[in-house]
């Protein structure tokens, strides 16, 4: 079979599993989990430097941005203005143009505010960013984002950090069918089987943070997710059997004694 290439914009990504770097015990554990996951792209947040603690460790000392693709995000932003400010700062930090846009609409559900998200996508694309967009699982909105120039569509599986898994397979499969840019399921994955299901639906990738970082053994879960994503992708490519109403014997009836 021809070797598959997973690309967002012009960026080739080797692993279809993208991992978040939040919620780990420390940066050492973050780095170990990223390594175990096999991911070559990680999401990172932009925050104030703690000026009172000059010795505080820095993420970049544990995850080398020359070896791992950093995907700056706008986590925690509730307005287009804040999201744009965050990503412009990220770009200034080291030229990051490939970014993850996430504009939240509600503190409890963490559902995205799609009005602000659409507005921000338009501006960012105009400014030359390549935008991977966290969004609701609405196929119409997903198409609109693609039309605005989004580089990847990232619908939620269920609320961020909820671990509820895939809540709406139908919508995700419609989004996958409609979109020409990569579709990456973002948010809500709870365990390995959720990641496999997402990939079996035909997603191009999966983004996972909490399910790995908050597992009892994050390193083992990172490995598990790596295999789950590979298994799901191969299962999708291999093509599953048709679902039958009745049983169909695996052994031939001919020659029965």
């Amino acid at each position: 079979m021809k070797k598959e290439i997973f690309k967002v914009g012009s960026q080739i990504i080797k692993s279809r599993l993208i991992v978040g770097t939040g919620k780990y015990k420390n940066f050492k554990q973050t780095a170990e989990a990223v390594k175990a996951s096999g991911a070559d792209m990680v999401t990172v947040a932009v925050r104030r430097v703690n000026i009172l603690d000059k010795k505080k460790p820095v993420l970049m000392d544990y995850l080398n941005p020359k070896k791992i693709i950093y995907l700056p995000n706008t986590a925690g932003c509730f307005t287009s203005e804040d999201a744009l400010r965050t990503l412009r700062l990220a770009r200034e930090m080291g030229g990051w143009k490939l970014v993850k846009l996430e504009v939240l609409g509600d503190k409890k559900t963490l559902y995205p505010n799609m009005i602000e998200t659409l507005k921000s996508t338009k501006v960012l694309v105009k400014e030359g960013f390549r935008v991977m967009v966290y969004c609701s699982d609405d196929p119409i909105i997903a198409k609109k984002l693609e039309d605005l120039g989004a580089s990847a569509i990232m619908p939620l599986a269920s609320p961020i950090g909820s671990g509820r898994g895939i809540r709406n397979k139908l919508n995700l499969s419609i989004i996958i069918k409609n979109c020409k840019v990569p579709v990456i399921v973002d948010a809500g994955i709870g365990t390995a089987s959720d990641a496999t299901i997402a990939m079996e639906l035909g997603c191009d990738g999966v983004l996972i943070n909490t399910a790995i970082a908050k597992a009892k053994n994050p390193i083992m879960m990172a490995k598990s997710m790596k295999h789950a994503v590979i298994a799901g992708r191969q299962s999708y490519l291999a093509g599953r059997i048709k679902i039958q109403k009745y049983g169909n014997p695996s052994s031939p009836n001919k020659g029965l004694i």
Binding site: F27, A45, V46, R47, M60, L89, A90, I160
Partner: peptide, 10 residues
């Protein structure tokens, strides 16, 4: 003045 950096995030 605001000085920002990358930290862990999802």
């Amino acid at each position: 003045i605001e000085i920002v950096q990358f930290i862990g995030g999802g």
